[in-house]
Amino acid sequence: MFDWRWDFVWEILPRLIWATGNTLIAALLGYGIAMVLGLVFALAQRTPSRILTMVVRELVEFIRSTPLVLQIFFIFYVGPQFGIRLSPWVSGMAAIGLHYAAYLSEVYRGGIEAVPRGQWEAATALNLSTARTYFRVIIPQALPTALAGMGNYLVGIFKDTPMLSVIGVAELMHTANAIGSESYRFLEPFTLVGVIFLAISLPTAWLIRVFERRVRRSLGMN
């Protein structure tokens, strides 16, 4: 094929694989932040306080409808303006964590709202405490509904990590760019990045589907 050089591929592959490690770390760290913060956003919208609900609702909408890459720039550059210097990693994780927290909060909310009202009523009739109702009755039933969305966003956050390259996080895309500008060869590095992404995201998506079915079955909901 057009000037495709295998020797160059073997030369750059170790660097790209090392960078893939950074990409995975970034994705998992960001997802961890998003899972916790997302739960905070979701539960904040279920408190009796109307103002808190409204403010969090609007914040979630705002985060969801503005570009992640712009949020990354915003967090990275606004700190220094006020004398706070954040490293690329810290601001990148904050931005991606916050962005996906907004998505996950919607997934959690959807899951919780899909639990029939009768389940809340039965819990009340049995005098279960609010915490017990959430953790033992509602969340186990919300989980199977939420898992599909949670899995999609795990793959999603992984695919969004290349945006971290814009502030200099040394993940896969950043490394491919560096290789390209050093060697003036873009065909191999950019193609390999695409292949690596496919090689990780397709099996992950498949594993998530298997896991989802398992959880459903283990909770006795076929």
């Binding site: 057009f2 990590t161 873009f186 065909l187 950019f190």
Partner: peptide, 23 residues
């Protein structure tokens, strides 16, 4: 569908902008 959903938009953009001219 799998190729475009399985890789990143940014990767696709760079590929189409920097690599496609080679073809």
């Amino acid at each position: 569908i799998e190729i475009f959903r399985g890789t990143s938009l940014l990767v696709q953009l760079y590929w189409i902008f920097f690599v496609l001219p080679l073809f």
